[in-house]
Design a protein around this nucleic acid. Structure first.
Length: 423
RNA sequence: GGAGAGAUGGCAGAGCGGUCGAAUGCGGCGGUCUUGAAAACCGUUGACCUUCACGGGUCCGGGGGUUCGAAUCCCUCUCUCUCCGCCA
């Protein structure tokens, strides 16, 4: 969430920036500022009462020690009144704080100055494009048909056993999955990331920490019996490692990578966009996460972007990079770049990675802080990116590399798959 | 799942219901010494809210309670450890 101080000191700026995300925040911002003032007033009142109580308690102790029973009893009377009063004040304060927090949590992160305004994906800004878009033969087919033809992914079987969006990968299809995961992890390790294997279920605090809760509750699978959520991305457990942690400046940069299954309910999506591997309820992803000093987080974002671009180059996939517009950005992000690969049989661009800087938005929720060189406690910046999400990579690989003889595996991947062709 | 023990500052580890935000050690920071470093010695070193400041308040796993007063007593939740059971 946004820092209270930012809102208090830059009211107009906050409102203006949120407008880029198409949020008309004037009313909420003003309410927050008023509640904040209210909170401080109540806090002062309560503190005064407590100060008096503390003082009396000490005096009473002294009276008992020196045997002045009567004086002690006298002081007790006042202290009893104060107790009632402080209880009431504390309840008031709690209520104000709760209101304040619930308002505060409603505000999305402020978009970075470079974020273009816009309503939807249409308005995203293309910042880069590279690679050759392949021209396929007349009889080229989409990946779901290839999957069937070569018996490497079985969607129907998944539907039978679980439901739509939970495919089985089999044979070389399963091997390809495993190869991609290892390839992505090795590349991240080479780039200096530390590998983690995280839990796939998270508690409510973690969901709140990275911003999935409360607003995106319906997007996660929920194991109600144990109050645990299935992770929509490894970002959640990996970033939450640092919840309530106080780092020192020398810890930066923290670079973590994790492979995990990801679970998304994708409630409300249907139609042709969800065909085959385009949108699944369970999929595989390698995620990179960095925790960085606020002064260096944008350099880090560039570096992460370059890492992802490198992966796509090695996979020989044509891709483009988009700077997301305000309307298409996530709630928690300050700046996001999406990577899309061209899937030649579907003749469309598929999002395969999203690299974001959250600045202090997640840190503030998580109380992820560090001590700077002056010994001052400050919020760290968090960043993450997919490197990469598998299904659409597989879709593009299958479609773009289909030949008469079978599906050609890119060079860089062959030592991981152990085969050059799916046939 | 059953029985028991525990949770204290960056870490380790003390702590009779009042003067404990908390001994001590380690680590960190500053200094003396040294060409430099180490060692030794001296000093310093928690977070948060509030205040221009002085100051005030909160925090000893989370929540609730007893008491004039709780790190210390009670309840509850979570987690950790030991033993038993079950099990990849």
């Amino acid at each position: 969430m946004l820092e209270l101080q930012t809102i208090r000191e830059n009211r107009a700026f906050v409102i203006e920036r949120l407008a880029v995300k198409n949020v008309e925040a004037t009313a909420v911002v003003d309410e927050i500022i008023a509640l904040d003032q209210e909170r401080r007033n109540r806090q002062k009142e309560l503190d005064d009462v407590l100060a008096r109580s503390n003082q009396l308690a000490k005096e009473i102790g002294q009276y008992f020690k020196s045997g002045q029973r009567d004086k002690a009893e006298e002081a007790k009377k006042e202290t009893t009144e104060l107790k009632v009063k402080s209880k009431m004040l504390a309840e008031d304060l709690d209520q104000v704080v709760e209101q304040l927090n619930s308002r505060l949590v409603e505000l999305p992160n402020l978009p970075h100055a470079s974020v273009p305004s816009g309503k939807s994906a249409e308005d995203n800004e293309k910042v880069h494009e590279e690679g050759v878009i392949p021209t396929l033969a007349e009889n080229a087919i989409p990946h779901w048909e290839l999957a069937d033809k070569y018996q490497i992914i079985d969607f129907n079987l998944g539907s039978k056993v679980t439901g739509a969006g939970f495919p089985f990968y089999r044979g070389k299809g399963a091997r390809l999955q495993r190869a991609l995961i290892n390839f992505f992890l090795d590349e991240a390790l080479d780039a200096g990331y530390l590998e983690y294997q995280p839990p796939l279920l998270i508690n409510e605090d973690s969901g709140f920490g990275t911003g999935q809760l409360p607003d995106k509750e319906g997007q996660m699978y929920y194991a109600g019996e144990d109050k645990l959520y299935l992770i929509p991305t490894a970002e959640v457990p990996i970033t939450n490692i640092y919840r309530n942690v106080l780092l020192s400046e020398s810890d930066f940069p923290i670079k973590n990578v994790a492979y995990s299954n990801c679970f998304r309910r994708e409630a409300g999506s249907y139609g042709k966009d969800v065909r085959g591997l385009n949108r699944l309820h369970q999929f595989d992803k390698v995620e990179i996460v960095q925790i960085q000093h606020p002064d260096r987080s944008y350099e880090t974002l560039e570096q992460m972007k370059e890492h992802v671009a490198g992966l796509l180059r090695k996979l020989e996939l044509p891709f483009r990079i988009l700077r997301l517009c305000g309307g298409d950005m996530s709630f928690t992000s300050a700046l996001t770049f999406d990577f899309e690969v061209y899937s030649a049989a579907q003749k469309r661009w598929l999002e395969v990675s999203s690299v974001s800087n959250f600045e202090s938005y997640q840190s503030n929720r998580m109380k992820l802080r560090f001590k700077d060189e002056l010994g001052k406690t400050r919020l760290a910046h968090t960043l993450n990116g997919s490197a990469l999400a598998l299904p659409r990579i597989v879709a593009a690989l299958l479609e773009n590399n289909q030949t008469e003889a079978g599906i050609r595996i890119p060079k860089a991947l062959q030592r991981y798959t152990g085969f050059e062709l799916i046939d």
